[in-house]
Design a protein around this nucleic acid. Structure first.
Lengths: 107, 107
DNA sequence: AAAATAGTTTAGTAATTACGCAGATGTTAA
DNA sequence: TTAACATCTGCGTAATTACTAAACTATTTT
């Protein structure tokens, strides 16, 4: 074991909570339905029932997915009457999706 | 429900397996110990026991994490005698970590 | 006011996941 | 060969997660 290398790497590491936050955010992306939702929102905002229809799961399930994504600031909502429209929160999300897509489709 | 919007968005969606692959890769990043491992590997390669010592979990657990990361081509290995050195597979990983880090640290 | 609509929340269940432990494989040293 | 070391694999357990169904909130329509 290389004690020197371990020590110098340890110095570069951040607090545990930083990695916990990273993992939590990646976790929000780690579900095919949520990935589909985010990809659907890349061009235009959609309401809950549009998304439910689009990907074929219940309104309830969509709402729960959106709550997870909203909590982590991956999507934002705009309320209008009884409708709630969702859109991507910022450009980070598109980059994450694009880079990961590129990685999975070849490497 | 906006049938037109749903239809046009549906046309832009990819096959289910694309989202499954995305989710699987994000899932590999969705664990704080794996995030820590990947961050540790940003500067230099490390062997299994170095990583185990660094983040404070068993060799066995590290090995299992590395298998997950290797399967999804997030890390690659170099064997030398009985040691196995791991490093990041390509630049995508750094981008994903950096962009996500930026997102979590502010938004 | 009553009914319908859009969305959220809660509860229960089935499936997945991360871990340590124990055992197996493979490599180097005595 | 025997011993020691580095890593990997299989198993059982505890915790997490995603889903449906049902109940609830809030808004609009009749």
């Amino acid at each position: 074991m290389d004690k020197e290398k371990v020590a110098s790497t340890k110095r570069r590491l951040q607090d545990d909570q930083v990695y916990a936050a990273l993992a939590e955010t990646f976790g929000a992306l780690a579900d095919s339905n949520r990935a589909k939702i985010l990809h659907s929102l890349m061009n235009e905002e959609l309401c809950v029932c549009d998304i439910a229809c689009l990907i074929g799961i219940s309104d309830s399930a969509v709402s729960q997915h959106l709550r997870i994504l909203r909590t982590l600031r991956l999507v934002k909502q705009r309320k209008s009457g009884r409708m709630v429209y969702y859109s991507l929160n910022d450009e980070h999300i598109k980059v994450l999706l694009d880079v990961c897509l590129e990685h999975t489709q070849h490497g």
